[in-house]
Amino acid sequence: MALPVTLPDDETFTSYFGGEDSLEVSHLKDSFSKLSQSFQYTYLCGLGDSGKSHLLYATCIQAQERGLSNMLLSMREVIDFGPMVLEGLEALDVLCIDDVHLVAGDDAWEKALFNFFNRFNEPKKMLVVTADLLPDMLNISLPDLESRLKWGTTLQIRSMSDDDKAQALVKRTKMRGLELSDECARFLLTRLSRDMRTLLDVLDKLDHASMAAQRKLTIPFIKSTLKL
């Protein structure tokens, strides 16, 4: 089954807004180094724009660079396919599941996730799960699944402030070989949605427009391109 999930190639540990020395990045990198010894499981918890999805993309990219089979499942995008999407995924080396809170209270999904945990719990396997709340706050109906979600390491990630988002935009454009001033980044935050995914989509549009027009990213150019 082809799943509608793609990996942004610039959402790496290097581009993570918290930095490569952050606790969450350091932990995930360390998990890869321990992979040959034991099952590695991490639960990332945070609201809204906390960068959880970015960390999952980065984990999959890291797995690819290490030659490990991997997949990212966005529950928001695959939930309607049903629990059958988990069948056979135990053959992977690394699996990332985003927004697991969306299936809380769904008996079929909860049982399927519990059974998958049991199948996947082996050395040389790595599982990273994200949710908006801690496991015991998700209203999980199946106690055994709640228990499984508490295995391993749980990391709570703070939401990004406007300053964090502005710095992330500046950093991302710099990685693309462009320059976005702090003033331009703050302009985008005041005139557009503060949702980080929306901002990154806009950044893609500005990137292409800048290259096509051979223009720098200035506020007048941004206004003209985005029709603001």
Rank of each mutant, 00 (worst) to 15 (best):
T225H: 07
L149M: 08
E87T: 13
D132N: 14
Y43D: 00
K223R: 15
D106F: 11
F117Q: 07
D93G: 06
I157A: 00
A104G: 04
I219R: 13
V94A: 01
S210W: 01
D9A: 15
L149W: 07
K125A: 09
R76W: 12
I157Y: 00
L86S: 03
M160Y: 08
L72S: 05
G88A: 09
R176P: 02
T14A: 15
L155D: 08
T218I: 09
H27Y: 02
D106V: 10
K174C: 10
E90R: 01
G88Q: 10
D10M: 04
P123F: 01
D204G: 13
I219D: 12
Q62M: 12
K174E: 11
N115Y: 15
V5G: 06
D99Q: 07
D163I: 14
D99C: 11
A2T: 12
P135L: 00
A108R: 13
T154N: 09
E87K: 10
I140N: 05
G48N: 10
F13R: 03
K216G: 03
N118R: 05
R194T: 12
D99T: 04
M84N: 13
W151D: 09
G19V: 05
T198C: 10
L133D: 11
D163P: 03
L188T: 14
N115L: 12
W151G: 10
A213S: 04
R191N: 15
L188C: 08
S22Y: 00
K34W: 14
K171E: 11
D182N: 14
R76L: 14
G48L: 00
S36Y: 15
F32S: 08
S50L: 04
M137A: 14
E122D: 14
S69N: 07
S53W: 00
T225K: 05
D93E: 10
L89K: 13
E90H: 05
D9M: 13
L133I: 11
M1T: 14
S193I: 02
T218H: 06
V202N: 10
T190Y: 05
M71A: 13
L142W: 01
R148D: 03
R186S: 06
V103S: 01
L72P: 00
P8I: 02
A58F: 01
L73N: 04
D93L: 01
E65Q: 07
P123A: 12
R191W: 05
A104C: 02
A91I: 12
S74C: 00
R148N: 04
L72N: 08
Y41H: 02
R176L: 13
S147P: 01
M71Y: 11
L134D: 05
K34E: 15
M71I: 09
V103W: 09
E146C: 12
E11N: 07
S74Y: 07
L56I: 07
L199R: 03
P143G: 08
G177C: 07
I222W: 04
G82S: 05
R148G: 08
I219Q: 08
L56N: 05
N115R: 06
M137Y: 15
